[in-house]
Simulated assay, not measured.
Amino acid sequence: MTAEQALADEARHRGVRVHAISPLYHPSTSRQAAIRSAGLVMGYALLERAFIDEGIRRLAQAVAALVRSSGSHHH
């Protein structure tokens, strides 16, 4: 699983739905192209500001959880 998909999954566990964009890119053997193709799509046009703020807070928690998790695997 890619870090991008791991983040999308972790966010989903926290009630935030985001979508990985890498499946939208043509496969490439270039490492630089692979790095550029990673990212998330977030839809929030119909949400009130308070819900957007809460979603961003939860997404930040998901990022922090993955950073902690990846750090524990290296020790």
Rank of each mutant, 00 (worst) to 15 (best):
L40T: 00
P23T: 03
A3W: 01
H75P: 06
A11P: 10
T29L: 10
D9M: 10
E48I: 01
A62W: 02
V18T: 03
E4V: 05
Q32I: 11
A6T: 09
A33Q: 04
R49S: 12
A33R: 02
P27M: 08
H75K: 11
V67C: 08
Q32S: 13
A45L: 04
E48A: 11
D53W: 03
R36N: 14
R17K: 13
L46E: 09
E54H: 05
E10Y: 04
A38L: 15
G43P: 06
L59E: 01
S37M: 09
Q5T: 08
S37P: 07
T2A: 12
G15I: 07
P27Q: 06
G55M: 06
A50N: 07
R58P: 08
A45T: 01
A60D: 02
S22P: 12
R58K: 08
H13W: 11
E54S: 14
A20I: 01
S72K: 09
G55E: 04
E54I: 04
V41H: 13
H19A: 15
M1F: 06
S22I: 05
Q61V: 04
Q5C: 09
M42Y: 02
R17N: 14
A33F: 07
G43E: 01
H19C: 13
V67F: 00
L59M: 07
I56R: 03
L66N: 04
Q32F: 02
T29M: 06
H73V: 11
A62Y: 02
I52R: 03
A65C: 07
G43I: 08
A62F: 06
R68L: 10
S28P: 14
A45R: 01
R12V: 09
